[in-house]
Design a protein around this nucleic acid. Structure first.
Length: 422
RNA sequence: GGAGAGAUGGCUGAGUGGUCGAAAGCGCUCCCCUGCUAAGGGAGUAUACCCUUAACGGGGUAUCGAGGGUUCGAAUCCCUCUCUCUCCGCCA
């Protein structure tokens, strides 16, 4: 969420930002400022009343200590009338705070100045392209190749669990394991600390990274225990430092984690969901950064460059999009999407999304650090995929297939695969 | 799953109804002393919010695992929950 004081001082900027992100109901900005003013008024009254009764209680304590029981009794009789008022006001105060926060949660992060203003994916900017997308007609979509080679079993996955939960078999299972190892090794080499995270999180964590309240439907729930199956490692890893105050010397912190990801993907059907394009369970290696606010712009660029380097090493043609204001999501200030070329489908597939969240997530999580002046300040968080597996697998299978039908294993994966072709 | 013990500031640890936001020690920061890494002396050292100030600052409120209750007054008493530890059971 945004800082209420920032909103107060930048009312028009925040309203404008909401319009740019495609949120038409920007009068919530005015409402939250009104609500905050009301809340502050009540806080002031409560604080004053409590100060009075604290003072009296202290006097009574002193009198009791000196043995002046009768004088104390007299004072005790005088109290009590303000007690009711305090109680009423306290209730009002907490109701107002909740109402204010609910409004606050509806206000998205403000996009960075460098982000193009736009409302559909047409408005995203092609930031750069790498490699020559294969155009030959004989390239098959990966689901055909996988079926011929018996590499992926969607039917049995559907029988055992449901649609979108495939089995990977033999060389395909091995390829996934190879990619996980390759991605983790590269990340560690780059200076990210490898961590293994829980696959379920509680409600506070889901709120910390912003899945709740705005993207609640994306997650699978375990209601009996109040858990959510993680939709991305971003959730447990970013929440790792929730409610902490870090020292400036700790920064920057880089983490990488491999986890499966579960997404309900409610309401998405059609040709986009064929094969590995969109699954309910998939594997991903995630990258998370905690950085000094002044560094986050530069850190986003190095994050993007690192993610791109993985595609280069796999020799998969890709392009990088700078997402426009309307297409980049609620919590981000700036976001790049990396899309790999799928020669069998003749389309681009998103395999990574690198985002800067500024202090938006940190404020929800109360994740702070002591700055140069010894003051506590919100940290900036960033994350990116490095990378999401299924579409990379699809791209490898389609791109590296020869006309004869073999799939040539990318060189960097051969140490993990043990073979040159599958 | 059953039984018991516990949760206090960066850490260790005192505190069982009143002047406790909290002793003491350690750590850390600054200053003093000392002619050289040591030792000693002094001061400071949580977080959030409100009011006030141009600012430095000042005043106030809340927080001793979380939430609720009793009381003029709660770290301290009562209730609920969470977590940690020990023992038993079960188990990859």
């Amino acid at each position: 969420m945004l800082d209420i004081n920032f909103i107060r001082e930048n009312r028009e900027l925040v309203k404008q930002a909401m319009l740019h992100k495609g949120e038409k109901n920007n009068e919530v900005v005015d409402l939250v400022i009104e609500k905050d003013e009301e809340w502050r008024g009540v806080v002031t009254r409560v604080d004053r009343l409590r100060a009075e009764s604290n003072k009296k209680a202290k006097q009574i304590g002193q009198l009791m200590g000196q043995g002046k029981k009768e004088e104390a009794q007299k004072l005790i009789r005088e109290t009590g009338d303000s007690k009711e008022t305090v109680k009423e006001l306290e209730e009002k105060m907490s109701v107002l705070a909740i109402e204010r926060d609910q409004l606050l949660y509806q206000i998205p992060n403000v996009p960075d100045e460098s982000v193009p203003v736009g409302y559909t994916e047409e408005d995203n900017e092609i930031y750069l392209s790498w490699g020559e997308p294969a155009e030959e007609e004989w390239h098959q979509p990966h689901w055909e190749i996988a079926e011929e080679k018996k590499w992926i079993d969607f039917e049995r996955g559907a029988k055992v669990t449901g649609a979108g939960f495939p089995f990977y078999i033999g060389a395909m299972a091995r390829l996934q394991r190879a990619l996980i190892n390759f991605f983790l090794n590269e990340a560690v080499e780059e200076g990210y600390q490898e961590i293994q995270a829980p696959y379920f999180v509680n409600e506070d964590s889901a709120r910390g990274t912003g899945q709740i309240p705005d993207k609640e439907d994306m997650m699978y729930t375990i209601p009996r225990d109040g858990f959510f199956a993680i939709p991305t490692a971003e959730v447990p890893v970013t929440n790792f430092h929730r409610d902490e105050i870090l020292s400036m010397n700790d920064l920057p912190i880089y983490y990488t984690a491999y986890t499966p990801c579960w997404r309900r993907e409610a309401g998405s059907y059609g040709k986009d969901v064929r094969g590995l394009n969109r699954l309910h369970q998939f594997d991903k290696v995630e990258l998370v950064k905690f950085v000094h606010p002044e560094q986050s712009d530069a850190e986003l660029e190095t994050l993007r460059e690192y993610a791109e380097s993985l595609l280069k090493k796999l020799k998969l043609p890709y392009r990088t999009l700078l997402m426009c204001t309307g297409d980049m999501g609620f919590t981000q200030t700036k976001k790049y999407d990396l899309e790999v070329w799928s020669p069998g489908q003749k389309r681009w597939l998103e395999v990574s999304s690198c985002s800067n969240f500024g202090s938006f997530q940190a404020r929800r999580m109360q994740l702070r650090f002591k700055n140069e002046k010894g003051k506590t300040e919100m940290i900036h968080t960033l994350n990116g995929s490095g990378l999401a597996l299924p579409r990379v697998v699809a791209a490898i299978v389609e791109t590296c297939q020869t006309e004869a039908g073999d799939v040539i294993v990318p060189e960097v994966l051969r140490p993990f695969m043990g073979v040159d072709k599958i």
